[in-house]
């Protein structure tokens, strides 16, 4: 068992909400498409409220009594060994590292997504509820929101690309399970832990 039900549910709810955010962002950002879709105020409202509720499933899953596995995995995501840093620097070619349940790229993806949610929410709030802030903040927030959105789209494309080319990993996010052989090969440090526990 690699991912429990809470983790999988959170992943797919997040995926759905990110999709809504990206899809509504397209006509908000590209004028030529805005002209095709129209109803800018409605599209903007969907985008804003989806964004506002984005952290809700995250917080529910992390803080709830059902979030033990997720919390343990977040601790793994946070802690990196020197070996993992080297693995990332070698773009995954460093074969000496005994990888964890999540590889450093996956760990980075989790941290990046978390940071993105906070920054996009913060800058989005300044853009939408601009009343109390100086003008230059609204411009600055728009700039950060636009630039980070570009990075997020790149990361999502990379993430989906990796998932589609690594079917066992993708299956583990759907069914939660991986084979023992897969674990020994791709996540040996974790496989050792599991073996020690049982």
């Amino acid at each position: 068992m690699r991912f429990d039900g809470v983790e999988r549910a959170l992943h797919w709810v997040n995926a759905a909400m990110f999709s809504v955010l990206v899809l509504t962002a397209i006509p908000l950002y590209f004028g030529s498409l805005a002209a095709v879709v129209g109803h800018r105020d409605v599209v903007a409202r969907i985008h804003v409220w989806t964004g506002v509720f984005l952290p809700v499933p995250v917080l529910l899953s992390v803080l709830g009594p059902w979030g033990r596995t997720l919390r343990a995995d977040l601790r793994r995501v946070n802690r990196w060994s020197a070996g993992e840093l080297a693995w990332l620097r070698s773009f995954g070619r460093d074969a000496f590292v005994r990888l964890d349940k999540l590889n450093p790229g996956q760990k980075l993806n989790v941290s990046f997504t978390g940071g993105s949610i906070v920054v996009m929410l913060m800058t989005g709030a300044v853009m939408w509820w601009f009343g109390p802030f100086p003008d230059s903040w609204r411009t600055g927030a728009t700039f950060v929101h636009d630039v980070l959105a570009t990075f997020i789209v790149v990361v999502i494309v990379g993430h989906v690309g990796m998932a589609l080319t690594h079917p066992a990993s993708l299956r583990s996010m759907i069914t939660g399970r991986v084979s023992r052989r897969w674990a020994r090969r791709h996540a040996p440090a974790w496989a050792d832990e599991m073996a020690a526990e049982s």
Binding site: N78, R79, W80, G83, E84, V97, R98, G115, A189
Partner: peptide, 14 residues
């Protein structure tokens, strides 16, 4: 190298 020998809080830093 094994994981866990030195734990750097990279996640939090990112």
């Amino acid at each position: 190298r094994a994981t866990g020998e030195v734990a750097t809080p990279v996640g939090r830093r990112v």
